[in-house]
Nucleic acid binder design. Structure first.
Lengths: 342, 342
DNA sequence: GACATCAATGTAAGCGCTTACATTTTGTCT
DNA sequence: AGACAAAATGTAAGCGCTTACATTGATGTC
């Protein structure tokens, strides 16, 4: 005594077929191409499905159909509201097309990202969303070999040939830096996320240097502090900046969270913002506007990016010609944390 | 001409076996129980694996082994920093035990949660993490039938028998409300997330009513506005509150984000906080401390909750006796947004 | 009425892996 | 050196599903 319709074990396609008095093929068709099956039969099958509480076995399905309707994404962290938002939009759009999203996080570690990408592929991700360009050639080669459509996002660089949808971190930050310099600031510091294997952070720093150069400042004089993502770390970095270079009047931060930390540290130290020092961020997360003083920052269309990334990936999945990369516009949100140099 | 070692197709176990001159069983063992294989053979196999760029097919593996080392989680949204943080910790701990996390989000919709849970199970999730208790009996029945270990989190209620790790939303909010009332507030309003199918939100509202009752206030007089998660929605709700009941002196919000919105609206309307009205939150997200004035709120140990949830789930997976539910302590963070009634 | 056509359904061959069981190799003991 | 146990490896049967191909039966045509 083993298999039987009434067993309490997990029901399979065959159980459903038996109960509905049809073949497994018909059940399968009911589930995947309902209109290939005549109404009456379909009703009977669906009834059996619900009677039994049947749910298809994903692994078996993937194995047989050689596709999973699953898209994978590896993001540096979920704690960053920015990724969270973009990914949420990405997921919503995917859902609209019947695709499921698998998320993994790399904790900002390149080797972990490598592992996660492979895990996602092994899991059958039909396509992948990756943040930024920076990763080992081996990984790219692996992806190419498995021919997994891959879309780079949160970054955009003319010189890269991989499909991407993002924005020009360098140009956006340069624009902001020009504004800062235009306010008379000459002693500038930057608090950035670690730039190793993070082209976005690197691009932003480069943007500052670019604007400094244009203004006749010595870009090498930029005081740069790299520190992991976090309000606390931003605070600490800010203290270091002011200890190392008390004459600093403007601190451009690589992202809003770091900027928020810097802001807090400034107030704690007794520095007025923007009276004594100006502080800027990047990303324009919701609270940037709520900070006291409100944070001048670079606004990025995260939700749009997420949504369009999904569309592009779906298009790639359909085997269309590789889509041309998209550069999304960013714009500066001028708020109180930036003022003229003292 | 089709299959062959040098084909550019995706390599399978059989390809590896052929190249290493062993059987597929040996390759499988090398990958799963390395010490069952003699060193020399293993080296040869591993070499073949890397030569070929082989990665196991997850679906096939799940199908054959009947387990996936995957844990699923359905969260209401990723945009809420609170879930993001807890889940991040959850994932880290799972990773330490060789498990992978699959995340799905329900957008705060009960039916979507149902769908997602089933999808996760179909995908082979060996266990599930769910937020709060509220969901249909059918879903619970389904989970029981498939015998998927399930852990409820972010909530804790004595009267529930499902394994859970969380905190007592009602008691925590009641404690805060007592403090507010202790400051002389009598005209109290609450801005809450929608309470339908959200026992956490409901518990928090109940907590306020409880404290009001204790203090001899009429709990029915509590002005309650329900609105989705968001700073903007919090702002709107705050305006409604003050329009409907200008005498209100304290607004208890169901979460920090709503409170931040309320705070902003208050300042816009020209109300001093806490001079004219006091505002409190719940969750103690990072920015609660940074708001101006800093937000009085209930601190919740999210990371610890996530970490311990992972441990519990792993224990459940090992088939240990069902773990007893855990109630984590919360504590009030008194900050400037709460002051005596005017 | 015989036959072609087409829609609905059935049959059965895998998909890539794990694992129980069978077989071979190695090592140990007398 | 032979016998035997243990270790290493091989063989092959599925796991639950999709799908190419085969079969059946209805409908329409001349």
């Amino acid at each position: 005594m083993a298999q039987s319709t009434s067993e309490s074990a997990i029901p399979t396609l065959a159980d459903v077929a038996r109960r509905a008095n049809v073949s497994t093929a018909t059940v399968s068709r009911c589930l995947n191409n309902p209109n290939q099956v005549v109404d009456e039969t379909r009703a009977r099958v669906l009834q059996a499905v619900s009677d039994l509480g049947y749910a298809p076995n994903f692994g078996a399905r993937a194995l047989a159909a050689k596709q999973t309707n699953t898209v994978g994404a590896v993001i540096p962290t979920m704690e960053n509201a920015v990724f969270a938002r973009g990914i949420q939009a990405f997921q919503e759009e995917l859902g609209r097309h019947g695709k499921t999203l698998l998320i993994a996080s790399s904790a900002y570690q390149e080797d972990l990202e490598d592992t996660q990408v492979r895990a996602l592929v092994a899991r059958g991700a039909d396509a992948l969303l990756l943040i930024g360009y920076d990763r080992s050639p081996e990984l790219y080669a692996f992806l190419a070999k498995r021919s997994v459509p891959t879309l780079v996002t949160w970054s955009f660089a003319e010189e890269q040939d991989k499909p991407a949808i993002g924005f020009d971190n360098r140009a956006a930050m340069a624009e902001l830096a020009r504004l800062v310099i235009g306010q008379g600031h000459r002693n500038i510091a930057c608090i950035s996320a670690p730039t190793a294997s993070n082209d976005r952070a690197r691009g932003r720093v480069e943007g500052i240097r670019l604007a400094m150069g244009e203004a006749g400042l010595d870009a090498d004089e930029l005081l740069l502090i790299e520190t992991p993502y976090g309000i606390e770390t931003g605070e600490t970095a800010m203290r270091q900046v002011m200890a190392a270079a008390p004459a600093t009047t403007a601190i451009l931060c690589g992202n809003d969270v770091l900027a928020l930390g810097a802001l807090r540290a400034a107030l704690e130290i007794g520095l007025g913002v923007p009276g004594d020092v100006s502080i800027t961020g990047f990303d324009d997360i919701e609270i940037a506007m709520l900070a006291e003083p409100a944070l001048t920052t670079v606004h990025v269309p995260h939700r749009e990016m997420g949504r369009r990334a999904a569309s592009m990936l779906i298009q790639m999945l359909r085997g269309k010609d590789p889509p041309k990369s998209v550069k999304l516009p960013t714009d500066i949100r001028l708020r109180q944390s930036l003022g003229p140099a003292r």
